[in-house]
């Protein structure tokens, strides 16, 4: 039950993009089309879930007993980078279209601050391995929800009469800001 609450919290109330402002780069960059946005969400879900699991295990099994907690950042980023490489190979083999659509943003998941951020939050909040993994998965789910909503809005917005000076990126920023305000409404769920 606490896990479910944690998941809802990570997913909606403390949405990773819209209220913690992590992972904005790909959120704004890959949200032009709903299908690539969904692909990005899935790729991030995979990386984030696995990285929080592996990082959790590594932290609790190796780093803490050996007293090497101060190495967590460098070790976590190694794991994240490797997982991203793995996802890249996987997609290149089994989903070439998605691989091409994601383009440069795929390797950039490595530097997506949401991934390292979640691994470090797990340590900061003393989550166990299971809790940390659920938290990672829920965070990624929140990211996926946010990016899919933005992608759909952006697709609809193409037909709208946007004032000339707001066309392109500015209106996306404003949309993201409005979404952030809307998601603030979930804080009443607490």
């Amino acid at each position: 039950m606490t896990l479910l609450l944690l998941a809802v919290n990570a997913c909606l109330i403390n949405n990773v993009v819209l209220s913690q402002f992590l992972g904005i780069c790909s959120f704004l960059g890959v949200s032009k089309k709903p299908d690539t946005a969904a692909g990005m969400g899935m790729a991030l879900t995979f990386v984030l879930t696995l990285s929080s699991l592996v990082c959790g295990i590594l932290y609790h099994v190796l780093l803490v007993p050996l007293g090497l907690e101060y190495l967590k950042t460098i070790v976590f980023i190694l794991i994240v980078a490797a997982l991203v490489q793995f996802v890249e190979m996987f997609l290149k083999k089994f989903a070439k279209a998605l691989y091409d659509a994601l383009g440069i943003y795929l390797p950039l998941i490595t530097t997506n601050c949401a991934v390292l951020g979640v691994a470090l939050i797990n340590v900061q909040k003393d989550y166990s391995i299971l809790t940390g993994t659920v938290y990672g998965f829920a965070t990624a789910l929140g990211y996926t929800i946010a990016i899919i909503i933005l992608a759909n809005i952006r697709e609809k917005m193409v037909n709208n009469d946007v004032p000339a000076s707001f066309r392109g990126f500015p209106i996306v920023m404003i949309t993201a800001a409005l979404m952030s305000i809307a998601f603030f409404g979930f804080s009443a769920l607490k």
């Binding site: 590594l58 190796l62 780093l63 050996l66 090497l68 190495l71 460098i74 070790v75 190694l78 794991i79």
Partner: peptide, 10 residues
């Protein structure tokens, strides 16, 4: 220990 740790993970 630090070198071995990071090296080992790498």
């Amino acid at each position: 220990a630090a070198t071995l740790m990071v090296g080992g993970v790498g």
